[in-house]
Design a protein around this nucleic acid. Structure first.
Lengths: 336, 336
DNA sequence: TTGAAAGCGCTAACAT
DNA sequence: ATGTTAGCGCTTTCAA
């Protein structure tokens, strides 16, 4: 069933059918009705390949997840990607775009991965999820190919005119630490993620800012560089406990979960002996005992925003770079 | 840059270029070289829309995840989907197929969701992830449209000629319970998932088979219907403990994690007082204390297999239905 | 308000 | 071994 047959059955020309489908140009109400009826009857759907060939638009965007999934699973980070995909697809479908998924594989060289993506001319634009290593090369090549893109997360290096959607890590962290200060804590430690990660660096920055704003000295002994996992959190917390602290700002809920365990294993009470604040508001945050005070970031919303921006870029409504920082929210629970 | 320009620069006809690109038909080594050089120089990539239009093949498969992501997150099940996507994309890319992602949204009616998928003629075939509710309607419509599909997981209803890739839940569960029997346990309870779920039913079935094979009576009091979550596991385990058991087969690791907590909260030791076996081998299984004996299913492999089958279906190498049960493996750890 | 006709970039008979 | 040619199904001038 193609547009010609529809036209024949409706007794009009192909152009008229096309106009009806696309809602453009002048079509008499009568013709429109006839065409619509035939389309319904025949359950006709325009061939996307033919349409893409002539319009040079596919109504498809790409989602690039550079992290190997093994990496994702190891860091118990799959929550993040699921929520992101949720937000992205919700917004994309709203605007009648489909989503092509590209995920990194350990066995595959990054250059080959990038080339595979670039070769796929089937996309009108690309959403790139920020990874630890950064995807500067891919972004640059996309720009060279004049393909719109938006980075989800923060750029590792400040390459010119990066469009991104992220959160204000420093402000959020500062608020979290300020909250601990308001609870009367003065010996506040922090467990960071790996320092090759921009989120880690910015969250540490916020911790420092809060202390500085309160005129408290910065004690390097109270900063432990960890990584975004329970085990790291557990080990790092043990170190902090030896050094004597009465509160901890953990750079992620996973870290906080490990830290919580370590505190309890040491026979200490939360929040009485040590108050604890996490980051992310993962599902576990409200399931831990005690429940965890944490910084909520809406990952799904991040995905939605990024998609909305990308589609606007594609449709030429706006021009890059578009840089967006989404608000976060401190969720106060039992652990503080 | 299109095939015509490449042909001109290489001093051959478009057909020759096409033959070189597709590696079909006779091309002299000399012509091939010339064409290849120009293609490299120009960084030429054939237009997929034009190609799809004439070949009626897009080299794209769809991945349908009917569960709303909220559902996924609530059940802490995002691991499953991440691993699946990993396996699917790995295999798809190996065979030069791209993947279009469709995820369910709470706000969207299922019929509309299905229609959206069906309308997208851009796919050569579809992978459907089995959901609690079943996707019979979608599968039937796909069949009507002559689009190849493979179900990942087990069909809820036995609709005719379903192609699927699943695991042998009953055999795996039977083995797990047999293992507990071999450890001398005789008062073995089980915590199931919700009974509207086929995996739950089959795993319970395996539990029953193992007891029957050992000539042990089936005590309904030792079967607690729960759901696939920590909290359900915790609550269900409390019930079982009151009824007196010396071992538990939990239908998932999440259930086992909750059960483990309940056992320890009751002041009992694992495995001394109560032995525990889970199902799935999630990352947490080896992180719990004690580490969890469990049934390992390779989710990534499930994705790979399903994809391989779908691509063979698409390329007409095989005919449906193709029904595959993947092997599982009992991983014995400290909890038993 | 409608239709005719050209052409998007490619593949695949068919002819040579 | 290579080139010519006729579409694939659609949109989009342009003319009527």
């Amino acid at each position: 069933m193609n547009i010609y047959e529809i036209a024949k059955k409706a007794g009009v020309s192909r152009s008229t059918v096309s106009r009806v489908i696309n809602g453009e140009g002048y079509v008499s109400e009568e013709a429109r009705q006839k065409v619509m009826r035939v389309i319904e009857e025949e359950n006709y759907v325009p061939n996307p390949a033919a349409r893409a060939l002539v319009t040079k638009r596919s109504q498809v965007i790409g989602i690039v997840i550079p992290d190997t999934i093994k990496n994702i699973l190891d860091t118990e980070n799959s929550y993040y990607y699921s929520a992101l995909l949720q937000g992205i697809t919700a917004e994309a479908h709203l605007r009648d775009f489909a989503t092509l998924l590209w995920v990194g594989h350990e066995s595959e060289d990054k250059g080959i991965y990038h080339r595979r993506i670039l070769k796929s001319q089937l996309m009108d634009g690309v959403l790139v999820v920020a990874s630890v290593t950064g995807e500067d090369q891919l972004l640059r090549q996309l720009s060279d190919n004049k393909k719109p893109w938006v980075l989800i997360g923060r750029p590792v290096h400040e390459i010119e005119s990066v469009s991104f959607v992220g959160i204000d890590n420093a402000a959020a962290s500062e608020e979290a630490v300020r909250h601990l200060l308001s609870r009367g804590r003065r010996r506040i430690g922090t467990i960071t993620g790996k320092m090759d990660n921009i989120d880690s660096r910015e969250r540490l920055q916020g911790y420092k800012q809060a202390l500085a704003a309160a005129n408290l000295p910065l004690d390097p002994n109270r900063i432990v560089e960890g990584c975004f996992s329970r085990n790291c959190g557990y080990a790092s917390m043990k170190i902090l406990l030896e050094r004597g602290i009465d509160a901890v700002f953990a750079a992620s809920d996973l870290i906080a979960a490990g830290a919580l365990q370590a505190i309890q294993d040491a026979g200490l009470r939360i929040p009485d002996d040590v108050a604890l604040v996490g980051f992310d508001d993962l599902p576990i945050a409200s399931q831990l005992k005690p429940t965890l005070t944490t910084v909520r970031q809406s990952v799904a919303e991040k995905g939605e925003q990024a998609t909305a921006i990308l589609l606007n870029l594609i449709e030429g409504r706006i021009a890059p770079p578009v840089q967006t920082l989404l608000p976060t929210q401190l969720i106060i629970r039992e652990s503080s």
